[in-house]
Amino acid sequence: MMLSKLNPGEIATIISIHTDEALHQRLLAMGFRSGKQIELIRKAWFSGPLQVRIGTTDILLRRAEAEKIMVQL
């Protein structure tokens, strides 16, 4: 399923990342790697960004980007 479909508090495993090259680089550096655990902390109002946690790092990303990241509960 897509990362954007997680509910706050749910923890899933990253399966694959389908973004362009540049964003992929950035996500990698921020800790997004397949096999890693990712927790959805909260979603902002009005379809705003998501707050996720990988390891000790908290990251904001828009739903459009979260739709390109596949995870498994």
């Binding site: 908290d58 990251i59 904001l60 990303l61």
Partner: peptide, 9 residues
């Protein structure tokens, strides 16, 4: 442009 940002403590 995608929006991805770190949230420091």
């Amino acid at each position: 442009e995608p929006f991805v940002l770190e949230l420091p403590p």
